[in-house]
Simulated scan of single mutants.
Amino acid sequence: MPRVCFQLQVKRDRIEEYKTRHAAVWPEMVRALYDTGWHNYSLFLRPDGLLIGYFETPVSVADAQAGMAGTEVNARWQAEMAEFFEELEGLAPDEGFLQLEEVFHLEDQLPPDVQEVM
């Protein structure tokens, strides 16, 4: 299953409101994310606004993004969230994030005897 990590920059003066909005994401948005392959999805926010996101998907990243792009709720959510971010250059946040390269995954390097126990 592909693991995806990405970063965005939240505007410093919008950090508290961004956190408030994510404390109660619309139920239809949560359902749409899950239904389109955004699983084990988490967001981490540094005090200076650096946002790191992580999700796993049973489909490709492009398919997960396309699935969400096809939903009405995503269009509404992205329109509301776009104002919170720096340097999107006209892209929606879910299209304008910088995907990070995975360079290490513990389970990929565990010896076979440990993997058998898992």
Rank of each mutant, 00 (worst) to 15 (best):
A69C: 05
P58M: 13
V61C: 05
H39K: 10
P27F: 04
S42G: 09
A24L: 13
L45T: 11
G67R: 03
P27M: 03
F55W: 09
D63Q: 15
V61H: 02
L51M: 13
M68H: 02
T71A: 02
M29S: 11
R76Y: 11
M68V: 08
V61T: 13
R76Q: 14
W77Y: 12
A69F: 00
A75L: 06
A75P: 03
I52S: 14
T57Y: 00
R76K: 15
Y54C: 05
R31M: 09
F44A: 12
Y54S: 07
P58E: 14
T71F: 00
S42W: 09
V59N: 13
E56Y: 07
R76E: 14
E56A: 09
A69E: 01
Y34E: 15
T71D: 01
R31I: 03
N40Y: 07
L43P: 07
A24Y: 07
S42D: 12
R76M: 13
L33H: 04
V73R: 04
G53Q: 10
R76V: 14
W26T: 06
E72Q: 11
W26D: 14
A64S: 13
V73G: 05
A24W: 08
S42L: 11
V59F: 14
V73L: 09
T57R: 04
G70D: 05
V59R: 10
Y34W: 15
M68C: 12
F55K: 03
D35L: 11
G49F: 07
D63H: 10
W38I: 05
A24Q: 15
R31K: 15
W77P: 07
A32Q: 04
T57V: 03
F44K: 11
P58I: 12
L33I: 03
V61N: 03
T71N: 00
L43S: 11
T71E: 00
L51V: 10
E28T: 10
V59E: 12
A23G: 15
R31C: 06
A62C: 08
A66M: 08
G70T: 02
I52T: 15
P27C: 03
N74L: 09
F44V: 11
S42N: 12
W38A: 02
W26H: 13
G49W: 09
Y34S: 15
L45S: 08
D63K: 13
A64W: 01
W26I: 06
Y41S: 00
L50W: 05
L33Y: 01
T36M: 01
R76F: 11
G67F: 01
V30W: 05
A23E: 14
A66C: 07
A62Y: 08
A75M: 06
V73Y: 04
H39F: 02
V30L: 07
Y41H: 08
G37D: 02
D63W: 07
